[in-house]
């Protein structure tokens, strides 16, 4: 069961502000999703290894060969927060 505190914690982790009313709303929605997935608990999965990829693919690599990087102007083109070739962010922590 997801509690109101869980929803607040998840909101904090995602840096999303959630109002009192939304907290209750999300709690109910998340619990109904979990309940739905809970049906899977009826299956016996003791000896079944978890599936993380539907394709049985292993070992996808690239060679250690240099490719061209983006020009600095392109990298910074979509931000107004820049200074001396760097991204600028507010003070943290």
């Amino acid at each position: 069961m997801i509690t109101k505190e869980d929803v607040e914690h998840i909101g904090w982790l995602a840096r999303i502000e959630i109002s009192e009313q939304e907290t209750v709303e999300y709690m109910e929605k998340l619990n109904s999703v979990l309940e739905y997935f809970g049906q899977l608990d009826e299956l016996e999965t003791e000896d079944v290894p978890p599936t993380y990829h539907v394709a049985e693919v292993f070992n996808v690599f690239r060679e250690d060969v240099v490719e061209e990087s983006l020009p600095q102007e392109t990298v910074l083109a979509n931000t107004e927060n820049k200074q001396d070739g760097a991204f600028r962010s507010p003070k943290i922590g």
């Binding site: 240099v66 490719e67 990087s69 600095q72 001396d84 070739g85 760097a86």
Partner: peptide, 26 residues
Amino acid sequence: KTKMFCGCSSDYHNSAPNTHTCPVCL
């Protein structure tokens, strides 16, 4: 010669900021 998950050069130590980047490492 290159980064972990993209072909950007690892030789960046004397370079201007954000000149060794691509969509993957950004």
